[in-house]
Design a protein around this nucleic acid. Structure first.
Length: 291
DNA sequence: TACAACTTGGTGCTAGGATT
DNA sequence: AATCCTAGCACCAAGTTGTA
């Protein structure tokens, strides 16, 4: 019988590993690889899991949701073969902390009235997508426990974060009165510095679009009086795309809103300068070897 | 909910003007 | 003549909208 077929949440020590046997790499080394995680009941209906496969080990958490069912999440890799970094590779203490973070964000009535009595509150709806990404990682961990696919989840999160940023930029571009592509042109010209001019070729290369697409954007923006085509006196074959006064104002309005939004986001996630540098460092390392 | 029509924005190709 | 660069055109893919 599968664990989730039980009709009530397991109690601590109900046939599970105790916390001590999961606490250190040495104690976990005594455990045999198997398909299902070793579960340790941290609290009623709340279990920390340690999965040990042939080639990888990882931390999981699960939450009893009633009717014998659990919601489950992949927390990160276990520090069995590599040192914990608190981000992708977690030691026992970090796994416990991250599981508590997840459980405290759940609180959507899964423990019935108890959750409400304990003061648990629902997280904003935007966490739902994150849970879906967890499901992807969890599904791979279940289907191919012999493979280390932990980076898949990280890449999906990076992609999702990019989409989130693009949605914010889209909202800002609408407030400025342009579309997202035109906003990128405004920002490229603005960050070029005075006199806020670039050749069309440099613009389409830096924004990763084709010359045809850039021509259309410039046409639209010229019509909106945000940019102007100015002949290049040094190379008469070429012209420069220059921000107009209205274009500079629109770009400045947009970049201030972007900065404000990012400041709010950073405050919400509580990321310190050191944590930011560390996360940035890991992503740079991925990009440097990722081909 | 499924499908078709429509819209939008992008790509690839190429013509043409200007310069080297 | 060769090269560089811009911009126009046809086509494509994805998203949106309207309808049954």
């Amino acid at each position: 019988m599968e664990d989730n077929e039980h009709m009530a949440p397991r109690q601590a020590s109900d046939g599970h590993e105790d916390g001590a046997s999961l606490a250190t790499p040495e104690s976990r080394a005594a455990l045999q690889p198997r398909r299902k995680p070793y579960w340790h009941a941290v609290d009623t209906g709340r279990h920390l899991g340690y999965y040990k496969g042939a080639r990888s080990a990882s931390w999981h958490a699960r939450l009893f949701v009633g009717a014998g069912r659990y919601e489950e999440i992949l927390l990160g890799k276990a520090d069995d073969s590599a040192g914990a970094d608190g981000l992708m590779v977690l030691n026992y203490t970090q796994a416990v902390a991250r599981s508590h973070e997840w459980w405290s964000g759940k609180g959507r009535g899964v423990l019935g009235g108890a959750a409400a009595r304990l003061g648990l509150r629902n997280r904003p709806k935007r966490r739902v997508q994150t849970d879906r990404l967890d499901e992807v990682a969890l599904a791979w961990a279940r289907e191919r426990p012999d493979l280390d696919l932990s980076l898949v989840g990280l890449f999906l999160r990076i992609k999702q974060a990019h989409y989130m940023h693009e949605r914010r930029l889209t909202a800002i571009s609408q407030a400025v009165g342009v579309d997202i592509g035109e906003l990128h042109v405004l920002l490229a010209l603005r960050r070029a510095g005075a006199p806020y001019a670039m050749r069309p070729t440099d613009l389409f290369k830096s924004l990763l679009v084709t010359s045809g697409a850039m021509s259309k954007r410039i046409d639209r923006m010229e019509g909106m009086k945000l940019v102007a085509r100015v002949a290049d006196h040094e190379d008469l074959r070429s012209s420069n795309i220059v921000l107009t006064e209205a274009g500079v104002a629109a770009a400045d309005k947009a970049i201030v809103r972007i900065a404000d939004g990012l400041a709010v986001l950073r405050a919400e996630i509580g990321m310190s300068d050191a944590q930011f540098s560390e996360a940035d460092s890991y992503i740079r390392r991925i990009l440097s070897v990722g081909g």
